[in-house]
Design a protein around this nucleic acid. Structure first.
Lengths: 240, 240
DNA sequence: GGCCATCAGTTGTGATTCCAACTTTACTCT
DNA sequence: AGAGTAAAGTTGGAATCACAACTGATGGCC
């Protein structure tokens, strides 16, 4: 049965096995196109195709001139963990990741207060983080905290660490995912054309049963995919 | 600048624009490989590549012998909406979707009671749904409801409709996403090898501030991707 | 009219070849 | 020795050709 399978799948499955089993650790080099043709006795098309599929799965990452390497796997992690890979992934492909962090003075936000389970008129601290790749903004995160946790003098990028230091243990994260911006408020920062689809993630960090921070993450659709796939021939919608 | 762009991107962008702008409605046929080579004056490789990229984005779906068509877009929807497309998507590619629904008699489940915000000893109704594609199980959903909503005599597949009929309006859905099974309990149904990665979604349907149903959805990783991508050349990790 | 076979069209896969841009390494020259 | 250069290797993009499996429609035959 494995005989009738596409040739490139043999390569994909063998390399994937080596990666998932830990034989190839993150950062380890993957055989090049030429090496694959020799090792597996396949054509160049199949080798290239195999690498493409693995890259598309997020298992490896390629760089012109340098080769493919095993990648950390943000694709299988929740969004808030995947986001933590932004900087490392940008570096991995030679891009310069930056982010602006701007913390506003505290004010009352009844809509946010509901999410934070606090009194409607309690002031919250707003932090806006614009993630950029080579200067181009590609992601916007707007984070809100009760003022008791942050009076506006520090940024929220390391919220987990800091709150951990305060003796609060973050136990879970709630994410609501929408396919559109609820309001067109913040889209100016990302320089999106009107009516564009975005992925909107409303995220709340909880410590026990108490929410300590909530945020809205806005990512244009061409930058995030929540792909629902099934095994072959449905699985890789692209290749089979 | 558009001159130095890859040729296949011209095709991708033009077709994508037509789809997102609604010129090509879901179900509409996409030009074939040959037609693309003629219309856009590109080679067959570029045409194939363009179709592959659009398929990988979930915008179109291909079928051998029949061609590509504009697809519904479950990829940009929350998981619980994407799941609703299981049956239609399976049909679209000529697979036979089935699902077993089994509802247990009610018993007390303190762990679930916490999620449903009910008393620890209150009985809950458990419903297990095994989604199959051509008989092969590809997805498992275990759903729990307070017995007040379901005494075990009906299944939960249409929970939204039924509760809507009861005068309850479902307002939001909470999803917690994990990269591994918390317990190895249910994995036997899916016939997964030990230690395999799965996407575990803990989902709760709320009516106002009252949870009415909670479920665990378990999907093997090769069947679901939460792909974190950025624009070219990072965007399509596979092709550029 | 209804049924069946044929055929053109389409996708998925594959081989082969080529080139530009880039990275890394090794080497040569000062 | 150090710096700059050249060469080899790598990826991404692209063209061209080929074939198996499948679909849909056409047309002929009963």
């Amino acid at each position: 049965m494995a005989n009738s399978d596409p040739v490139y799948l043999r390569v994909v499955e063998d390399l994937r096995r080596q990666i998932t089993e830990g034989l190839l650790q993150p950062g380890a080099p993957i055989p090049s196109r030429h090496q694959i043709t020799r090792k597996y006795g396949v054509g160049e098309t199949a080798a290239r195709h195999a690498l493409r599929v693995l890259a598309q799965e997020g298992l490896i990452i390629g760089r012109v001139g340098s080769g493919h390497r095993v990648r950390q796997r943000p694709d299988l992690l929740p969004l808030h963990r995947a986001q933590a890979h932004f900087s490392t992934d940008m570096h991995a492909i030679g891009r310069r990741p930056t982010c602006d962090v701007k913390t506003d003075s505290a004010e009352a936000r009844p809509d946010i207060a509901i999410r934070l389970r606090i009194a409607a008129q309690s002031p919250v601290t707003r932090t806006r983080i614009v993630y950029r790749s080579d200067g181009k903004p590609v992601q916007l995160a707007v984070s809100y905290e009760p003022v008791v946790y942050n009076d506006g003098t520090e940024d929220v990028t390391q919220v987990a660490h800091r709150l951990g230091g305060n003796g609060l243990k973050l136990t879970e994260v709630t994410e609501h995912v929408y396919a559109r911006v609820p309001q067109p408020v913040e889209s100016d920062v990302l320089d999106l054309p009107a009516g564009v689809h975005v992925l909107h993630v409303e995220r709340t960090h909880w410590a026990g049963d108490k929410p300590v921070e909530t945020s809205d993450v806005i990512i244009p659709c061409d930058q995030f995919r929540l792909v629902y796939t099934l095994p072959a021939p449905y699985g890789d919608l692209t290749n089979r």
